[in-house]
Amino acid sequence: MSLLERFRSLAHPGAEHVEDAPFVRLRGVRANYNGVVALEDIDFELHGGEQVAVVGPNGAGKSTLFKVIAGIHPPSRGTAQMRGSDPRGHICIAYLPQRNEVDWRFPVTVQDVVMMGRVSKLGLFRRPKAKEWAIVRECLALVNLGDLAGRQISELSGGQQQRMFIAQALAQEAELLMMDEPLNGLDAPSQDEVFKILETLKQRGVTVLVAMHDLGLAARRFDRVLLLNRRLVGFGRPPDVFTEDHLRAAYGGHLQMVETPEGTLVLNDTCCDDDPAHAH
């Protein structure tokens, strides 16, 4: 790419969406992370507008899978496509950070963070005008943060911070939204708030992938789940995916099945041992 082209790419038009192409399609994907094979033989398709929980033990490759789909970590083998083309050409993919990855002291307000989603739409050398700020306000209203637009981001609660990033994805006009452990460290009411907004996203036709640890929550809240442990262990309706064979394949020795009078209880002790927010 010439220097001029690279400068022009600061104002990005986004790739064409091919009619009838699958929304997201991975074929034989292998991806390395820090020299280790993190994903192998991954094949699946996502339908536009569906919401899928991605579950698996720590180090299963959930984040790497998201990076491959987002086009920021090219697979070493196989192909990833969004709507018929390389994801690297698309500006409608949002991959929200985990809350512990964010510098909350950064000098920005809630509305500034949401406005960042508009940057590639705005284009080079353009400042946001009244029309752009109206879009930002609209997105903040959709996630019930209208009143906090002018707050510095560290003043928000965990649930509000998560909703702020969803508003940023809305401002980006994202058609695919990926969230890495958005429920970590949130209390039950805040989790409910996030699920309420996922419902809004469903109505707007946004495709959503959520990486999470809690298998029960995934089964209750999502129509489809993707069980991952380096390879794709299962993908489909929760009762079809969360079978004993699949769970053993994914969690191995870390999983304990306890027979109780009420049924089988699955204990997963790999969860969160490095995450103080989840310390028991």
Binding site: S9, H12, H90, V102, F106, V113
Partner: peptide, 23 residues
């Protein structure tokens, strides 16, 4: 000043900059 918003996004969230396809 010309690249103000691009530098802001890059500094706040490198991954957002990448998914917005900023160089």
């Amino acid at each position: 000043l010309a690249f103000y918003k691009e530098f802001m996004v890059l500094s706040f969230d490198t991954r957002l900059a990448a998914t917005l396809r900023l160089p």
